[in-house]
Design a protein around this nucleic acid. Structure first.
Lengths: 154, 154
DNA sequence: TCCTAAAACTTTAAGCTTGAAATAATTGCC
DNA sequence: GGCAATTATTTCAAGCTTAAAGTTTTAGGA
């Protein structure tokens, strides 16, 4: 997914865009992953889950998490398992429906995440440093619109 | 990496951009991966390696591959191993330096890849369908410039 | 009620991914 | 030549990821 088109032709510009998009996100992702590891001894998937839960103090269902994070169900199970075993996240059985479990950050998880999130935001600011705030808004708008057309159609 | 900023403030626009970028590439990547699996019974990493090799008929070193694909050395070893065992890729020991091995597509690998690449390109054209060719070029330019500032500095 | 289908989640197998340690070969300096 | 440092690659352990199959629970009819 990282090699470019070898010739010109119709549709090549979209392919080139896709390659660029992918290389950009992989590069940034790699840098963030490395810093999360070095500075906080954690991983991107853990960060993702905690970020989602931080936004929902009331908790989230496992299926909400997997839908929101765009990953499979089974995937979330493993990551949450590890976070639970480290005391950062708690599962709570609900009275209403015994199939589901409400997942939320513990006190410790919440405190821990707040520190990581602050660093994370400043890293992103640094890594995207030569995109002006104005340009960032325009790019964001373009990305928003081109996604909405087909995403989640199936 | 997929949850957004929870408040406004300086730097938030860059964070929002990063979230968008990541969600866009993850969504497209997931769709492409699913189609590669269904239509050609292959995976994205295999496709990546074959795409890189297709552009270099003379072959590539393992370290070239890992640098180009933005993944670790050990990673490439495993993927190439599997491709070799399927007869799509061949390793050739070089005379000059016995530490290195030149990796290249076999005849079969090359034929196989050409078909997959054609489908892949049309999928990308479809998935990015409502980005005009012109807009695609502009976005590509923006992505190119914002990356070059810090990438590969360490 | 009973029973089929659906929903929420976990488990499993296979493969991907990283960083670190290990192996093997080459280079450069004395 | 000998030997330390470097380079190219593989191996390893741990964790991530998916799709598919399995478990438990709920819901909706006949």
């Amino acid at each position: 997914m990282v090699a470019g088109p070898t010739s010109a032709g119709p549709g090549k510009d979209r392919l080139r865009l896709w390659i660029r998009l992918l290389r950009a996100s992989r590069t940034i992702e790699a840098e963030l992953r490395e810093r999360l590891k070095k500075e906080f001894d954690t991983t991107l998937p853990r960060f993702d889950v905690m970020a989602a839960l931080y936004r929902s103090p009331e908790g989230m269902l496992m299926s909400d998490l997997s839908r929101f994070l765009l990953v499979s169900n089974g995937n979330v199970t493993g990551i949450v398992d590890r976070l639970v075993s480290e005391g950062l996240v708690a599962r709570a059985r609900r009275n209403g429906d015994r199939r589901t479990s409400m997942v939320r950050l513990t006190e410790e998880g919440s405190t821990s995440f707040a520190a990581i999130a602050a660093a994370h935001e400043s890293w992103v600011g640094e890594l995207l440093g030569n995109v002006s705030e104005d340009e960032a808004r325009r790019l964001t708008g373009m990305l928003k619109s081109f996604r909405s057309n087909w995403e989640g159609r199936e």
